[in-house]
Every structure is written in structure tokens, then in C-alpha cells.
């Protein structure tokens, strides 16, 4: 059962990565990344049971916290003026080419 759960979670992570690569907007990518992180936490916990090493749970805990901080950090950065400026430049050059 644990092996099946591992495989299922790996499949979900694959789906999240597909959305992360395809994602039309930046926010789709961040969303997929956030989901990927949550699934990684679950994967680490399950692997801890599968390998009989409960210490893995500590790593899962830390990963959950780091995941949250990184998502908030990326969002904070995407709110910054410089980032918006570069985004506008990109779209304007694209429109210019078309």
C-alpha cells in the first residue's frame, strides 16, 4: 500500500510539473510549484515509513516550512517594481515584434 501511495504521489508531482512548464501565466507556475512542494512533504513522510526511518519526518517538517517561505518570497518579489518593469518590457518587445 505504501508503495502504491508513493507511485501515486510521484504521478501527481509529474502532473504538477507539466502545469509548471506549460502554465500560461507566472501565477500558474507558482501555484504548481506550491503544490509540488506539498506533495514532496507527503512523499518524504511516506518514504520514511517505507524505509523504516522515522527521522525523515523532521525533514518533511522543515520542507513544509521552507516551501511556504519560498512561495511568499517569490510573490513578494513579483510585487516589486523592478520585476513589473521587466515584465512590461518583455511584453512590449513581443508586441513590437508581432
Amino acid at each position: 500500500m505504501l508503495t502504491a501511495a508513493t507511485i501515486a504521489i510521484l504521478v501527481v508531482m509529474l502532473l504538477a510539473i507539466i502545469r509548471c512548464v506549460v502554465g500560461p501565466t507566472l501565477y500558474d507556475r507558482i501555484l504548481a510549484f506550491n503544490m509540488f512542494g506539498t506533495k514532496t512533504v507527503l512523499l518524504i513522510s511516506i518514504l520514511g515509513f517505507l524505509m523504516g526511518r522515522p527521522e525523515f519526518l523532521d525533514i518533511a517538517l522543515v520542507y513544509a516550512l521552507i516551501n511556504f517561505i519560498s512561495v511568499i518570497g517569490v510573490l513578494r518579489f513579483s510585487d516589486s517594481v523592478e520585476f513589473k518593469h521587466s515584465l512590461q518590457e518583455q511584453t512590449s518587445t513581443k508586441e513590437g515584434k508581432q
Binding site: 500500500m1 501511495a5 502532473l15 504538477a16 506533495k39
Partner: peptide, 16 residues
């Protein structure tokens, strides 16, 4: 675990 896997897979399909 089975239920959780099903829900996670549904979410994965939903995001696509």
C-alpha cells in the same frame, strides 16, 4: 491512503 491517493490524483487532473 487509498482515498488520499485518489484525492491527490483528482487534484492533479484538475490542475491540468
Amino acid at each position: 491512503l487509498l482515498l488520499g491517493c485518489f484525492l491527490c490524483l483528482s487534484g492533479g487532473v484538475g490542475i491540468l
